[in-house]
């Protein structure tokens, strides 16, 4: 594709979700998409900022949008759906509310027009297109029976993120099926895993994540596919804790979408960071029955 995209990593991808960053970078490189990290980006404030000071939340995101505009990016990839949603929300305000736009521009000390569009990882794969994805496949994902998990913020709130259908999304299914994988119909594709409550309210995360994992298993999935660092932490890193509370639950590998695209186009697990997951996720394991994993 030979494309250059502005890239907003966000704190998670530069911290405990570094495997997501290596996965995306390796995978997009295979499609000749180069990511250029936004100079001097700042944290979007995550749930903490919008929970206690909505203006601070919008200002932090507005600062990043202003930098992206200054650097001349037409599109900015934010792989974390929370960052992405916060950036989209700030952009909406900038485009729709002139008084607010001026206030934000004053606060962030930069001109602000809302020119740069914010996109998520699925939108990058959709712009590559199913035909080109298919052409790149070296190892069809025939053993994959995926439960595509969108979580909260890839599709919500719909007026802010303007992506897919917030009750019945199917963009991830389309991408995976182009790679030879099959997908299952299930009930928890857009239910919440507990998100940023992992530290503050672990019991919440365990119960919400359990419902998601159990429903995926009940509908015949042999793995879960996510596009969010927090979903991955809760479903992968915390899966051992979840299984302690619910011993009947079998182990279920949790992939980032870019992991599976990367594996299909012939990248190695170590190039993508799949070997860094807590639940073993080598593709060979998927052909074994769940009870033996």
């Amino acid at each position: 594709m030979n494309l250059l995209l502005g890239y907003y990593p966000g704190c998670a991808l530069h911290g405990s979700s570094s495997d997501y960053e290596s996965s995306i970078q390796a995978c997009l490189q295979a499609f000749k998409i180069r990511l250029v990290e936004l100079n001097g980006w700042v944290c979007c404030g995550a749930s903490a900022a919008h929970s206690v000071n909505p203006l601070l939340s919008k200002s932090l995101s507005a600062r990043n949008l202003a930098i992206a505009e200054r650097e001349g990016y037409t599109e900015l990839l934010a792989p974390c759906p929370l960052c992405s949603m916060e950036l989209c929300k700030a952009r909406h305000t900038i485009l729709e509310d002139e008084e607010h736009r001026k206030q934000l521009s004053d606060i962030v000390e930069l001109p602000l027009q809302g020119k740069t569009r914010v996109i998520n990882v699925l939108q990058v794969f959709e712009s590559i297109g199913q035909a080109e994805l298919r052409e790149h496949v070296k190892q069809p994902l025939t053993e994959v029976r995926a439960a595509c998990y969108y979580g909260c913020l890839l599709t919500r709130p719909p007026k802010v993120v303007e992506f897919d259908d917030c009750e019945h999304p199917n963009s991830m299914e389309g991408i995976l099926e182009a790679l030879g994988a099959s997908t299952v119909k299930w009930n928890f594709a857009t239910e919440c895993c507990g998100a940023g409550m992992t530290l503050a309210r672990e019991e919440t995360v365990i119960e919400l994540s359990h419902r998601i994992l159990a429903n995926a298993v009940a509908h015949g999935a042999n793995c879960i596919v996510v596009a969010c660092p927090m979903c991955h932490v809760n479903l992968d890193m915390k899966q051992e804790e979840t299984r302690k509370a619910h011993p009947e639950l079998p182990q279920l590998p949790v992939y980032y979408l870019s992991d599976l695209v990367g594996l299909a186009v012939g990248l190695k697990e170590s190039q993508l960071g799949v070997d860094k997951h807590f639940v073993p996720a080598e593709l060979d394991l998927l052909s074994e029955p769940a009870e033996t994993r």
Partner: peptide
Amino acid sequence: GKFRLFGGKSGDRDVIKRIFDKC
């Protein structure tokens, strides 16, 4: 490799403090 003792820092930390103060 998921643990970084010293996290990244933004280059514009003075601006960030001013943004916090103003909000």
